[in-house]
Nucleic acid binder design. Structure first.
Lengths: 129, 129
DNA sequence: TTGACAATACGAAGCGCTTCGTATATACCC
DNA sequence: GGGTATATACGAAGCGCTTCGTATTGTCAA
């Protein structure tokens, strides 16, 4: 057990984000959403999604001609994977330092601080049960 | 201006960490510290550091036969670079979500919460001046 | 001077990720 | 059926990162 969550590549992550927000989708649908911002070709997205299916990052339903793809890993787990990696490769495991740097990049938004305090309270409370 | 901080590769980061903690060092010194954990060859580290010098990640003093290398980017800036990237590639800019995931990975350490609260207070205070 | 050692320089291979061109299969319409 | 549009499958090239083998240069001592 204790399999550490996968850290999909940049391209894979973009596709996963579409699948997380859209739910099960065809390659074309993903491609359309992606090509709004990035200018990648259709077959590029296709190939990537095929590889992702092989890796187990997405699950594929082939009953229709246009296959349906669905994320096979959750956004939460994926986020955790990236944070864990960053935490010990860059921050030596210190969540404080991580937070400190995160705050520095968001100067000007003071409300965020209060929201974070609220988050801490809630998190602490949830832990007691 | 507003050049976004570089995000050194995995290998480059390991070397930078040694330089940050040791200060200016020779390839051999870096290699020795690294080979305590990883089994990389000497010339591998050398090549990497040469490339880093080209990229401007380190500065090289060639007056001695054994060149001295020194980090040319700060650990703070580098950390910021990684956080910014993670923040908008994975967390859509939300520092709260980032923190939430970070906390989940550190279950059991309740003291950390208080330390983080202290950090928030201090950060808020420093901002007022 | 020469031998032994230690440093840098260079080239190339391997791997993973990304990208795309092309081939092939399937569905639909006239 | 035949043609067109739309899928998937496959192969390969390019790039960046890592790794290492080998060549070259410099240093010191006997």
């Amino acid at each position: 057990m204790h399999e550490s969550p996968p850290r999909p590549s940049a391209g894979e992550l973009e596709i996963l984000r579409v699948l997380w927000s859209r739910g099960p989708s065809t390659v074309r649908e993903v491609w359309q959403e992606l090509s709004a911002t990035r200018g990648t070709g259709y077959t590029t997205v296709l190939k990537l999604m095929q590889i992702m299916a092989q890796k187990g990052l997405v699950q594929r339903d082939e009953t229709q001609r246009a296959h349906q793809y669905e994320a096979a890993i959750s956004d939460e787990d994926t986020q955790r994977g990236f944070v864990v990696d960053l935490l010990d490769r860059v921050f030596m495991g210190s969540a404080q330092r991580l937070l400190l740097r995160a705050l520095e990049t968001k100067q000007g938004r003071t409300e965020e601080l209060d929201e974070i305090r609220a988050l801490l309270d809630e998190y602490e409370k949830g832990k007691q049960e």
